[in-house]
Protein backbone atom coordinates (compact mmCIF):
# COMPACT_ATOMS: atom_id res chain seq x y z
CA UNK A 1 0.00 0.00 0.00
CA UNK A 2 2.68 2.40 1.07
CA UNK A 3 4.70 1.23 -1.81
CA UNK A 4 1.88 2.04 -4.15
CA UNK A 5 1.54 5.58 -2.88
CA UNK A 6 5.22 6.06 -3.14
CA UNK A 7 5.19 4.84 -6.69
CA UNK A 8 2.34 7.07 -7.70
CA UNK A 9 3.86 10.05 -6.03
CA UNK A 10 7.23 9.46 -7.53
CA UNK A 11 5.77 8.80 -10.95
CA UNK A 12 4.24 12.24 -10.75
CA UNK A 13 7.11 13.96 -9.02
CA UNK A 14 10.05 12.59 -10.91
CA UNK A 15 9.32 14.26 -14.25
CA UNK A 16 8.90 17.59 -12.54
CA UNK A 17 12.11 17.17 -10.64
CA UNK A 18 13.87 16.23 -13.84
CA UNK A 19 12.39 19.21 -15.60
CA UNK A 20 13.59 21.42 -12.80
CA UNK A 21 17.01 19.82 -13.06
CA UNK A 22 17.13 20.52 -16.76
CA UNK A 23 16.08 24.08 -16.09
CA UNK A 24 18.86 24.48 -13.57
CA UNK A 25 21.37 23.09 -16.02
CA UNK A 26 20.28 25.16 -18.97
CA UNK A 27 19.91 28.37 -17.03
CA UNK A 28 23.23 27.96 -15.29
CA UNK A 29 24.59 31.09 -16.90
CA UNK A 30 21.51 33.15 -16.24
CA UNK A 31 20.34 32.21 -12.78
CA UNK A 32 21.71 30.36 -9.78
CA UNK A 33 22.62 26.81 -10.53
CA UNK A 34 24.56 25.18 -13.24
CA UNK A 35 25.88 21.86 -14.35
CA UNK A 36 26.72 20.53 -10.96
CA UNK A 37 23.58 21.31 -9.07
CA UNK A 38 21.34 20.59 -12.06
CA UNK A 39 23.08 17.33 -12.78
CA UNK A 40 22.79 16.35 -9.16
CA UNK A 41 19.06 17.09 -9.19
CA UNK A 42 18.51 14.96 -12.29
CA UNK A 43 20.63 12.23 -10.80
CA UNK A 44 18.72 12.38 -7.53
CA UNK A 45 15.45 12.11 -9.40
CA UNK A 46 16.64 8.98 -11.15
CA UNK A 47 17.73 7.56 -7.83
CA UNK A 48 14.34 8.37 -6.41
CA UNK A 49 12.75 6.56 -9.32
CA UNK A 50 14.94 3.56 -8.76
CA UNK A 51 14.17 3.55 -5.06
CA UNK A 52 10.44 3.84 -5.57
CA UNK A 53 10.25 1.04 -8.09
CA UNK A 54 13.27 -1.11 -8.01
CA UNK A 55 16.72 -1.22 -9.31
CA UNK A 56 15.84 -3.11 -12.43
CA UNK A 57 13.39 -0.41 -13.46
CA UNK A 58 16.08 2.17 -12.96
CA UNK A 59 18.63 0.27 -14.96
CA UNK A 60 16.07 -0.24 -17.68
CA UNK A 61 15.81 3.51 -18.04
CA UNK A 62 19.54 4.03 -18.08
CA UNK A 63 21.66 1.01 -18.80
CA UNK A 64 25.13 0.55 -17.44
CA UNK A 65 26.77 1.05 -20.74
CA UNK A 66 24.84 4.22 -21.34
CA UNK A 67 25.78 5.67 -17.99
CA UNK A 68 29.37 4.73 -18.65
CA UNK A 69 29.28 6.54 -21.96
CA UNK A 70 27.46 9.52 -20.53
CA UNK A 71 29.92 9.80 -17.70
CA UNK A 72 32.94 9.78 -19.92
CA UNK A 73 31.37 11.92 -22.59
CA UNK A 74 30.61 14.64 -20.06
CA UNK A 75 34.27 14.99 -19.28
CA UNK A 76 35.21 14.58 -22.90
CA UNK A 77 32.87 17.37 -23.97
CA UNK A 78 34.51 19.61 -21.43
CA UNK A 79 38.04 18.78 -22.48
CA UNK A 80 36.97 18.77 -26.12
CA UNK A 81 35.60 22.28 -25.92
CA UNK A 82 38.86 23.30 -24.31
CA UNK A 83 40.89 21.69 -27.03
CA UNK A 84 38.64 23.13 -29.69
CA UNK A 85 39.65 26.54 -28.43
CA UNK A 86 43.24 25.65 -29.12
CA UNK A 87 42.37 24.76 -32.70
CA UNK A 88 40.53 28.02 -32.98
CA UNK A 89 43.71 29.81 -32.12
CA UNK A 90 43.21 30.62 -28.47
CA UNK A 91 44.63 29.05 -25.36
CA UNK A 92 43.11 26.02 -23.76
CA UNK A 93 39.53 26.64 -22.62
CA UNK A 94 39.35 29.98 -24.31
CA UNK A 95 35.85 31.27 -24.91
CA UNK A 96 35.45 34.70 -26.40
CA UNK A 97 39.00 34.86 -27.70
CA UNK A 98 38.49 31.55 -29.44
CA UNK A 99 35.56 33.03 -31.24
CA UNK A 100 32.69 31.17 -29.62
CA UNK A 101 29.57 33.25 -30.25
CA UNK A 102 28.53 34.90 -27.02
CA UNK A 103 25.00 35.66 -28.13
CA UNK A 104 22.82 38.21 -26.45
CA UNK A 105 23.37 38.28 -22.71
CA UNK A 106 20.22 37.11 -20.97
CA UNK A 107 19.14 34.75 -23.70
CA UNK A 108 19.06 31.03 -23.18
CA UNK A 109 21.57 30.51 -25.95
CA UNK A 110 24.33 32.81 -24.87
CA UNK A 111 27.70 32.57 -23.26
CA UNK A 112 29.42 30.59 -25.99
CA UNK A 113 31.39 27.71 -24.56
CA UNK A 114 29.75 28.13 -21.17
CA UNK A 115 26.59 26.65 -22.51
CA UNK A 116 28.32 23.59 -23.94
CA UNK A 117 30.42 23.00 -20.91
CA UNK A 118 27.51 23.32 -18.54
CA UNK A 119 25.67 20.77 -20.59
CA UNK A 120 28.62 18.41 -20.46
CA UNK A 121 29.00 18.84 -16.75
CA UNK A 122 25.30 18.32 -16.21
CA UNK A 123 25.32 15.05 -18.15
CA UNK A 124 28.38 13.93 -16.36
CA UNK A 125 27.17 14.71 -12.86
CA UNK A 126 23.79 13.11 -13.43
CA UNK A 127 25.37 9.97 -14.85
CA UNK A 128 27.89 9.89 -12.05
CA UNK A 129 25.28 10.10 -9.33
CA UNK A 130 23.31 7.31 -10.90
CA UNK A 131 26.30 5.06 -11.42
CA UNK A 132 27.50 5.67 -7.93
CA UNK A 133 24.22 4.90 -6.33
CA UNK A 134 23.62 1.85 -8.46
CA UNK A 135 27.00 0.42 -7.77
CA UNK A 136 26.61 0.95 -4.04
CA UNK A 137 23.20 -0.73 -4.01
CA UNK A 138 23.97 -3.40 -6.56
CA UNK A 139 26.85 -4.63 -4.56
CA UNK A 140 24.41 -5.58 -1.86
CA UNK A 141 22.48 -7.89 -4.13
CA UNK A 142 25.63 -9.43 -5.47
CA UNK A 143 26.87 -10.19 -2.00
CA UNK A 144 23.46 -11.41 -0.91
CA UNK A 145 23.62 -13.99 -3.61
CA UNK A 146 27.10 -14.66 -2.58
CA UNK A 147 26.26 -15.39 1.04
Amino acid sequence: MEDLILRYVSRIVVPFVQLYGLYVVFHGHLSPGGGFSGGAIIGASMILYALAFNLAAGTKKISHDLSLILESSGGLIYAGVGLLAIFLGANFLGNMVAGFPLGTPGNLFSGGAIMLITLGVGIKVAATMITLFYSLIEEEQATDEHH
Binding site: G34, P105, G112, I114, I117
Partner: peptide, 19 residues
Amino acid sequence: TGALNVIASIIIDYRAFDT
Protein backbone atom coordinates in the same frame (compact mmCIF):
# COMPACT_ATOMS: atom_id res chain seq x y z
CA THR B 1 31.58 35.87 -21.37
CA GLY B 2 27.98 36.61 -22.11
CA ALA B 3 26.70 35.12 -18.88
CA LEU B 4 24.52 36.96 -16.41
CA ASN B 5 25.41 34.69 -13.58
CA VAL B 6 28.86 35.87 -12.65
CA ILE B 7 29.55 32.66 -10.78
CA ALA B 8 28.88 30.65 -13.90
CA SER B 9 31.12 32.94 -15.88
CA ILE B 10 33.86 32.47 -13.34
CA ILE B 11 33.66 28.73 -12.99
CA ILE B 12 33.19 27.98 -16.64
CA ASP B 13 35.16 30.72 -18.24
CA TYR B 14 37.58 32.72 -16.14
CA ARG B 15 38.58 29.76 -14.03
CA ALA B 16 37.38 26.97 -16.27
CA PHE B 17 40.47 24.92 -15.65
CA ASP B 18 39.48 24.56 -12.01
CA THR B 19 36.14 23.25 -13.05
